[in-house]
């Protein structure tokens, strides 16, 4: 289970004749994931829900609309000593705030996480960063999010740098 929070930058990509101004907004998500395999390489699948708030207004008095979304993604995960890096690819089903407009877009999310606290024999709290890139049909969003994860490991797991198990 993971909770994320961060920033996203959005700009329209659709209107050749118009200059569009990138604008920033806050974003957050709650995700549930499964990691299969415990070797150097493993596979990861993750689904959840996200919210990207509307951006700040530009000087022309427009802003990019906020939206709620459901997402599902999968991809490889690689362990470098203490740090797990991953690259997810998937899709988001979204709905603009206060509207009846639904839309879909693929996204990529590279990220990493580092176990920092042991909770018993099987649970670990991990912290990391993710950089989702939303490939929307009429615009482009990229963000940076802090990720806090509570993970359950089937095998007894202790990360020595993450504190003693009591």
């Amino acid at each position: 289970m993971a909770v994320t929070g961060g920033l996203a930058v959005t700009a329209e990509t659709d209107y050749d004749s118009f200059i569009t101004v990138p604008a920033t907004s806050a974003s957050a998500s709650v995700q549930a994931g499964l990691v299969i395999g415990d070797g150097l390489w493993s596979a990861m699948i993750q689904g959840g829900q996200s919210y990207q708030a509307s951006t700040a207004f530009t000087t022309e008095w427009y802003r990019y609309r906020g939206f709620y979304s459901l997402n599902l993604a999968a991809g490889p995960r690689l362990r470098f000593r203490y740090l797990d890096a991953y690259l997810l690819g998937g899709g988001m089903l979204a709905r603009y705030d206060l509207s009846f407009s639904y839309f879909f877009f693929p996204y990529l999310e590279p990220g990493y996480c580092l176990p920092i606290i042991n909770l018993g024999d099987h649970f670990t709290i991990e912290l990391g960063l993710a950089a989702p890139v939303y490939l929307r049909a009429d615009s482009f969003s990229a963000g940076l999010r802090a990720v806090a994860t509570v993970s359950y490991n089937e095998d007894k797991t202790q990360f020595l740098w993450a504190g003693k198990n009591r």
């Binding site: 329209e12 207004f57 427009y62 802003r63 990019y64 609309r65 603009y96 509207s99 009429d138």
Partner: peptide
């Protein structure tokens, strides 16, 4: 009905 644009105006 409302347009499906990514932008909205104040």
């Amino acid at each position: 009905h409302l347009s499906g644009t990514a932008r909205e105006y104040a």
